[in-house]
């Protein structure tokens, strides 16, 4: 009997069960990164940096060498790693509280120095791990445990658009915002991750892929409604697309 392989386990991830809540998109994003690292032959030279937040345990999930960083410091930790291990494939995996709030200086300066690394930025507009507090990315009028009547511009400011901000940093090479709410976008997101690692491995500098993600538990919605909410509310404020492509092919600069 002829058999045809149509799907194989993703060897870019370990056998550990995910600790993520049902319906959250971390799982899809992990899977894409694992696949890209394996398909590009980078898994055995990869060093990932886990951050603080829901993805703190990502060092248990990616099937490569991993280092866990203090809150927000992943781009600094990755800088230290990449500078002494320039041949390795270095990536950080950070949420929006970690990257856009406490770690804003580290990501801006890593981009500014043109560190040859890949940042995976997962934006779900809330602090998930600590129980649903307002993040710098929380939308106006979005209710969280620390914005119970909804985020107000006065006092809390407007949500930070990180990709747009980093596009203004000369040292950044490739910046793209993607979503994983349907198969079409998942495929597109995978291509973005591939591009980011290509940029890094061809020593063209700093790359970041921002993912629009969900938090069904803290948003108080079922997984499907969460995906719809992200499409209807987040993507209009955080439009998808390439924010900078200063690669040889892209020619932004």
């Amino acid at each position: 009997m002829n058999t045809k392989t149509i799907y194989q386990p993703n060897t870019g991830l370990t056998d550990r069960d995910f600790t993520y809540c049902p319906g959250c998109t971390h799982g899809i994003i992990h899977k894409l990164i694992g696949e890209v690292l394996v398909e590009k032959g980078l898994i055995d030279q990869a060093i990932g940096v886990a951050s603080v937040g829901c993805s703190v345990l990502s060092y248990e999930f990616f099937n490569c060498d991993m280092q866990q960083a203090a809150h927000g410091r992943a781009p600094a930790v990755a800088t230290g790693i990449k500078r002494v291990r320039p041949e390795s494939a270095v990536f950080t995996y950070q949420g929006d509280g970690d990257l856009a709030s406490i770690g804003l200086a580290e990501v801006v300066h890593a981009a500014h120095r043109g560190e040859n690394m890949t940042v995976i930025f997962v934006n779900n507009a809330i602090y998930g791990m600590t129980g649903g507090q307002m993040a710098p990315t929380t939308l106006i009028d979005q209710k969280t445990t620390t914005s119970p009547i909804g985020r107000k511009k006065v006092g809390a400011g407007e949500p930070i658009r990180v990709s747009e901000m980093l596009a203004a940093v000369p040292g950044a090479t490739y910046l793209e915002r993607v979503s994983v709410h349907d198969p079409k976008h998942i495929r597109k997101a995978k291509k973005a991750i591939e591009k980011a690692f290509d940029v890094q491995m061809s020593k063209q500098g700093f790359s970041m892929i921002e993912f629009i993600s969900t938090c069904p538990i803290n948003w108080g919605m079922n997984p499907n409604d969460s995906l719809n909410w992200a499409v209807e509310n987040m993507i209009p404020y955080y439009p998808l697309g390439v924010y900078k492509d200063a690669t040889k092919e892209g020619g932004d600069e």
Partner: peptide
Amino acid sequence: VQAESEVAAINMVYGAAGS
């Protein structure tokens, strides 16, 4: 590397030492 802050510098140390 001249880091952007002492905090970043020690975390670079942490990363480089870890590797």
